[in-house]
Computed example of a mutant assay.
Amino acid sequence: MRGVPPTVLRALVCGALLVLPSCGWGAPSAGQGERLPGAPLGVTAAAGSATSVHVMWNLAEEDPPVTHYEVYRGNTKVAEVPGAEHMVDVTRLKPSTGYVFTVRARNSAGASGPPSKRVRATTPAAVTADRTPPTRPGSPRGKAVGSRAAQLSWTRSTDKGGVASYDVYQGGSKIHSVGGAQTATVVTGLRPGTAYAFTVRARDTSDNTSPPSETVRLTTAPGSDDGRGTAPTAFRATTHRADGAYYIDLSWVAPPVDGVISEYQIHLDGRAATSLVWGGNPPHGTATYSFYVGRTADETHRVRIRAKLPDGTWGGFSAQRSVTTGG
């Protein structure tokens, strides 16, 4: 990052927010030049039923590339998934029980990185002798959001014991799960100019699954686009002066996707300038960040921001703002 005072950079790195120059900082190494994957970011865990928990994390770009993710319940490895996947259902759990999960990445050199932050989930109580599935989700709707994402929504299912989660299917494959209180989601990582068929199933606390909803069919836009449906919103930029230096102050709201947005990239005057990585919990609602741009007044800068989505791809850019130092 251009001209960042060392004391400012040190304070940011020691906190929850890591500020990386656009050239990036290398991953930690493990002797003889061996590079370890970083700890997975954006890890969440939510009960899918009385006996299962849905664990998600953000895909990472690593060199060597990540080939597998290992999911741990406490100190026990309970699942291993390919490096292209970023979620798994951990099953055979006990009702009314709290669990702690972590995720580790393993690269093509066979090296495993450090564990992610610990996330907790508590399974609900099971309904005794419940063999009745929820009703099917109603009125499913969907629309393509540019070339790489789709918005889906549906109306609630009913169940005597309560709906614990909704599972989203692409064709015959389950690709996502959301909590029982949620009736919409954004599916990312799609291919341009491609036809998709989605259905939704409700799941209750006893793991009974509803019939599938009606099929939502849509086709993503051809080619690349600006990804506006996955761009940060309410983006604002102002400047302030402190100790003879000028700073640009940014604020924005994360794009509406399921999962955790843990990384952003700031473009300044048409070039990638800074990456922001939250090592802890990213802020809810409006996020803010301020960065140094020099000591010269009356300089005009153009700035915009984009988010790295949970599937490891970059979302669309926010609107571009122009600011003038000292103005």
Results as ranks from 00 to 15, higher is better:
A111N: 09
S112P: 06
P115G: 11
P115F: 02
R120N: 14
T122G: 06
T123L: 05
A125V: 06
T128P: 12
T128A: 14
D130R: 02
D130F: 07
D130M: 03
R131N: 13
T132S: 10
T132Q: 12
T132D: 10
R136F: 05
R136H: 01
R136T: 07
R136S: 06
G138V: 03
S139R: 14
P140E: 07
R141N: 04
R141D: 00
K143N: 05
A144D: 01
V145R: 05
V145W: 08
G146C: 10
S147C: 12
S147P: 01
A149C: 05
A150Y: 15
Q151V: 08
Q151L: 11
L152A: 04
L152K: 00
S153K: 15
S153A: 14
T155P: 12
T155K: 11
R156E: 02
T158N: 11
D159Q: 11
D159I: 05
D159S: 12
K160P: 05
K160Y: 12
G161F: 03
S165P: 07
S165F: 13
Y166D: 00
D167C: 11
V168E: 00
V168K: 00
V168N: 00
Y169V: 10
Q170A: 13
G172V: 12
K174C: 09
I175W: 06
H176C: 11
V178M: 12
V178G: 01
G179C: 04
G180C: 13
Q182E: 14
T183H: 12
A184W: 09
T185M: 02
T185R: 08
T188K: 00
G189E: 10
R191G: 04
P192N: 08
G193Y: 01
T194S: 11
A197I: 07
R201H: 11
R201F: 01
R201P: 03
R201E: 05
A202K: 00
